[in-house]
């Protein structure tokens, strides 16, 4: 589904990613782990070209999604981002109602049919396991929700435009344990329909939610394998050390 070939990425002179070759399968959850500052977010942002928004960056190598090089000139970036949803570290709902937050992606993609939008909002709120909690405050400000609810709202917002891939950058790091559990449960549910790539700081979380895990350090992909193998019997000593908490 996602294939990268010899990716090098630079912020100005600083090389944040070093020669990363990796492939992620459809309908699986791939987790990126590694100490902070090792380039996990940078790598994730490559897939929906969010790094384009940062000045002075440079990319070498290829990034193929569904077989197409997404850095090709012929690629429509807005369409790409519609197809590849993203959930951020800190919940970032818009200062709009719950309903309008979810409807936003539909509206900017040219959908006007009111009935369709209303149905879609309900459907995605259900898919994000949020509908029961917010059905009476659909037209209240999203800021009235709790942090965990806001994050699930952001997931719903991303799902509304029917992406095929969902990128999540430490989606639970700002949340309490109960909200975190809800998000993890949700990820289990979502992987039936979506390809999910999740960055996490939390090793147990990676072990719980992912099928495959990539371990990054200082911009390099150190090891990449099935999550089970990674946590029980990693090939590299650095991985072993990191997982058992000897650094990071």
């Amino acid at each position: 589904m996602i294939v990268t070939k010899n990716i090098n990425f630079y912020y100005g002179d600083f090389q944040a990613l070093k020669n990363i070759t990796m492939s992620m399968d459809a309908n699986t959850v791939t987790a990126f782990i590694g100490p902070s500052g090792c380039g996990k977010s940078t790598f994730l942002r490559l897939f929906n070209r969010m790094n384009d928004l940062i000045d002075g960056t440079r990319l070498e190598g290829e990034c193929l999604i569904k077989g197409k090089n997404i850095y090709d000139k012929s690629i429509n970036i807005d369409a790409l981002r519609k197809d590849i949803g993203m959930v951020f570290q800190k919940p970032n709902p818009f200062p709009k109602s719950v309903f309008e937050n979810v409807a936003y992606g539909l509206r900017v993609n040219g959908i006007k049919d009111k009935k369709f939008i209303a149905d879609k909002v309900e459907e995605t709120l259900k898919a994000a396991a949020l509908f029961e909690e917010v059905k009476d405050k659909l037209h209240k400000s999203a800021f009235e929700l709790s942090g965990g609810q806001q994050q699930r709202l952001c997931i719903a917002r991303a799902l509304a435009v029917e992406p095929s891939i969902l990128l999540m950058d430490e989606p639970a790091s700002a949340l309490d344990p109960i909200s975190t559990a809800k998000i993890e449960e949700l990820i289990h549910e979502l992987k039936k329909k979506y390809t999910i790539v999740i960055v996490t700081h939390n090793m147990q979380q990676a072990a719980r939610v992912s099928d495959k895990t990539g371990f990054f350090m200082l911009g390099e992909l150190i090891e990449y394998s099935d999550t089970k193998k990674m946590f029980l019997n990693p090939d590299k000593e650095t991985t072993q050390n990191y997982i058992t908490g000897r650094f990071g």
């Binding site: 928004l53 807005d78 936003y104 509206r107 917002r157 435009v161």
Partner: peptide, 20 residues
């Protein structure tokens, strides 16, 4: 984060400015 949130949904810059 409002701007990035909007771009991530496929909104153009103009839409992001106008609507968010």
């Amino acid at each position: 984060s409002y701007r990035t949130g909007s771009y991530a949904l496929g909104a153009t810059k103009l839409q992001t400015i106008r609507k968010v």
